[in-house]
């Protein structure tokens, strides 16, 4: 009894009363949902093809990996490790697209934002590209690159490039001129101005762009894998759906949102916080 009290006191100290309460309250609907889901597999109100039993969804992991020779093989991308291959091909595309698209988007955004005339002309292009970007490019990408890696990568890259480009450009444009002049009169070069004024000045806007590109890019990627891909989680759930393997679809969807939530919560949000601390404050142009 005392240990339980001690334990709960310890937890309360660790998380704080409010957060603990929030956590428990927040878990309730999930538990209820899972419970109802479980009841359905017992009483079969809805056909298993429509709502598969939890056990089947869990089982799908092992079923999809059943021919996989082992962890090492899974990491190496052995052809029989179906699930891990789909997961890693989606994630790899995200990483590739980010590695290429983020520097490009930020770089061009800064260059365009530095010049008032150029940015005035490029703004409508940015607006247009952001409103067609993502899904509507898929058919054209398929025509250009055929079904497969190139198309899916292109869709992701295209989505994040324009979002970052636009957000960076707008952020740079809002940096007060006097800050640039200050650095110039200290003898700073153009590169000093870029690295020490434009980049940090546009940082909040760039981070917003980064979070948006993950949100929109990930969705677009899933759609691209469905329509113009031959691997990835999007491809997997699409094929499974046409074969009425609902448990695989459920599994895929759950993985898709977990991957997204994890990147956002554990990567982008901390990055946002860190940069804000690093750059000193939530600096917003007035």
């Amino acid at each position: 009894m005392t240990t339980i009290t001690e334990f709960s006191v310890a937890i309360q100290r660790r998380f704080g009363r409010q957060r603990l309460r929030k956590f428990i309250l927040g878990m309730i609907p999930f538990i209820v949902l899972i419970f109802v889901w479980h009841l359905n597999s017992i009483f079969v109100w809805l056909d298993p093809v429509e709502i598969p039993p939890i056990a089947d969804v869990w089982g799908a992991i092992f079923w999809l990996q059943s021919d996989c020779p082992g962890v090492i093989a899974a990491i190496e991308g052995h052809g029989d490790c179906i699930l891990t291959n789909h997961v890693s091909s989606s994630i790899l595309r995200v990483i590739l697209a980010m590695v290429v698209g983020v520097p490009l988007g930020i770089g061009f955004g800064i260059l365009a934002g530095m010049n008032r005339v150029v940015s005035a002309y490029l703004e409508p292009i940015g607006v247009f590209m952001n409103s067609v970007s993502g899904i509507a490019w898929i058919p054209l990408a398929v025509v250009w690159f055929g079904v497969g890696w190139e198309t899916t990568l292109f869709i992701m890259l295209n989505t994040i490039f324009w979002l970052l480009f636009f957000n960076t450009m707008m952020g740079v444009r809002a940096v007060p001129k006097v800050l640039i002049q200050g650095v110039q009169t200290l003898g700073g070069t153009r590169l000093d101005a870029i690295l020490q004024v434009y980049l940090p000045g546009a940082m909040t806007s760039i981070i917003t762009g980064l979070r948006m590109s993950m949100a929109f890019g990930w969705r677009a990627l899933i759609a691209a894998e469905m329509i113009g891909g031959d691997s990835g989680l999007g491809f997997m759930i699409f094929v499974s759906s046409s074969e009425f393997k609902t448990e695989e679809v459920f599994l895929g969807i759950i993985l898709i949102s977990i991957i997204f939530l994890a990147t956002d919560r554990w990567l982008l949000v901390p990055l946002e916080k860190w940069t804000i601390e690093r750059w000193g404050l939530v600096w917003k142009p007035t």
Binding site: V178, Q181, G182, Q184, G201, G280
Partner: peptide, 20 residues
């Protein structure tokens, strides 16, 4: 053009907000 031989103190808001 501007250079470090002439230092300028502007009216306001010219120090960088992200530097200590």
């Amino acid at each position: 053009g501007p250079g470090p031989d002439r230092g300028v103190v502007f009216q306001e808001h010219a120090i960088l907000p992200w530097r200590t």
